[in-house]
């Protein structure tokens, strides 16, 4: 994904490509490419990212529609979860004889 938008150039818009590798799995970001429209982006993604049966489904999203969290805010943004170990099952000390839990 790019950090800049090519607003005034004659370049075709940039698209982010997501591929579902197998039925039942989620779509995963694999990269990006330029295309005039969504249909062309899907067709090009087929050629660029699935030459070896890497996918059964393709999503394309124009890069300008992706909004991302700011890495500079990471501390404030994610730290509140740090001291909440009780959200994890391993936090609880239970007798060994307790089964099926």
């Amino acid at each position: 994904m790019t950090t800049n938008e090519h607003i005034n150039s004659g370049e075709w818009p940039l698209w982010e490509i997501f591929i579902r590798s197998r039925q039942g799995l989620d779509h995963k970001h694999v990269g990006s490419l330029h295309a005039v429209d969504a249909q062309m982006a899907i067709e090009n993604a087929r050629d660029v990212y699935t030459r070896r049966m890497e996918g059964v489904s393709i999503w394309v999203v124009e890069s300008k529609h992706i909004h991302a969290s700011n890495p500079a805010d990471a501390e404030a943004f994610y730290d509140p979860a740090n001291d909440k170990a009780y959200r994890h099952p391993t936090f609880y000390n239970l007798p060994d004889e307790l089964k099926h839990m």
């Binding site: 790019t2 150039s9 940039l14 990269g31 990006s32 490419l33 660029v48």
Partner: peptide, 16 residues
Amino acid sequence: GLYLYSAAETLGITRD
């Protein structure tokens, strides 16, 4: 070539 151009574009240079 296309994978790599895309990777370079994330650094702020355009394809053109």
